[in-house]
């Protein structure tokens, strides 16, 4: 871990000012990923701005009729919030599929969006990694890539985004509220994270001095037929090889609306609205789910160790949608 200076900010303005004042500064909230990476010398912020005392720890009703999740509400408090459980069960389930109870008690909603990849090479400074050290090369492409991306990869990076929460947020059309030296702005969830392209060192479209203050959830009809499937190498406390956030809004057995987002397969939560839309009005059946899954995986490329994920992801989509279909029956 490098040497750094540290300040506690007491309000948003102070936090934004503090980070501007220090070169190479980072915000710290839960710290669960940042400190992990600092101990590995992967991230070396010269300054930490502690934002834990900011007044961003509420879950509130928003004007649209949905909920706004404060950036500093912990993952646990979000998942187990009664309103979230009732109105956004998909989000609740996704959060609870991630990390461990202890980590969920520390990690914040804002911080979760900034979680960095679990790529072995990113974590090991003895190896080449374009995300950690631009231009050094990608070791994973010809290396151990069982956990790596199959969609949206580039020749520079095949890392995945590790979050479960973000997969559900993507499915639910969340919006991220950001503030910074140039004022406030709102980012559609689909625009929040980036694909690696030529700039794999950039995980998202938020600039250094900007602070996520909250996440807006629009009103949602996906309260019954939802399922979060996490396929992993052990039953808990492991990152997803493939995860699927599946939600159905049904009229009889006909799809009124559908959401399918995938985790563990790309540099960002993977969702294709146009594919979802093409199934509106169709029957919720295994055949249709499989056809949808095939389309979702269009363009998927494997790198040897992770090639199995292409078929696995398709099966996971079918399973998640079938479970979502069934979960409505139990209610």
């Amino acid at each position: 871990m490098n040497s750094f200076s540290y300040n506690k900010a007491h309000d948003v303005a102070e936090a934004v000012a503090d980070i501007q004042e220090h070169e190479g500064a980072r915000f710290i909230a839960g710290g669960t990923n940042l400190l992990d990476l600092m101990k590995e010398n992967v991230m070396k912020p010269a300054h930490l701005t502690d934002i834990n005392r900011l007044d961003l720890a509420d879950i509130k009703e928003n004007e649209e009729g949905g909920l706004t999740l404060g950036a500093l509400v912990t993952n646990a408090d979000t998942a187990w919030n009664e309103r979230v459980e009732q109105r956004y069960p998909l989000l609740s389930k996704a959060i609870l599929a991630g990390a461990s109870p202890q980590l969920r008690n520390m990690a914040t909603n804002g911080g979760n969006l900034f979680q960095r990849t679990r790529c072995y090479y990113f974590y090991d400074t003895a190896t080449a990694c374009n995300k950690r050290e631009p231009g050094s090369g990608c070791s994973a492409i010809n290396g151990i890539n069982r956990i790596h991306a199959i969609l949206g990869t580039s020749e520079h990076c095949i890392a995945t985004h590790p979050s479960d929460m973000c997969v559900a947020l993507a499915a639910l059309d969340a919006k991220v509220n950001v503030t910074g030296p140039n004022g406030d702005r709102t980012v559609e969830f689909g625009d929040f994270h980036r694909l690696p392209g030529n700039t794999p060192h950039l995980d998202n479209n938020i600039s250094q001095g900007e602070l996520v203050t909250s996440i807006d959830l629009p009103p949602s009809n996906f309260t019954k037929n939802v399922f979060y499937l996490k396929v992993r190498d052990r039953q808990s406390y492991a990152f997803a090889l493939v995860s699927v956030a599946a939600a159905l809004d049904l009229e009889g057995d006909v799809i009124k609306d559908i959401r399918v987002a995938m985790g563990g397969v790309a540099h960002k939560p993977w969702r294709r609205r146009e594919v979802e839309e093409s199934y509106i009005g169709k029957v919720a059946s295994t055949e249709n789910f499989r056809a949808l899954a095939e389309t979702m995986l269009t363009g998927a490329v494997g790198f040897g160790g992770n090639t199995f994920k292409i078929e696995l992801a398709k099966r996971a989509i079918v399973r998640a949608l079938n479970e979502a279909l069934k979960s409505g029956e139990n209610l």
Binding site: K8, I28, Q102
Partner: peptide, 13 residues
């Protein structure tokens, strides 16, 4: 009363 991993938080925090 809440359980956390003490290794991933700074004492100053």
């Amino acid at each position: 009363g809440k359980r956390i991993n003490s290794c991933l938080t700074l004492a100053v925090m």
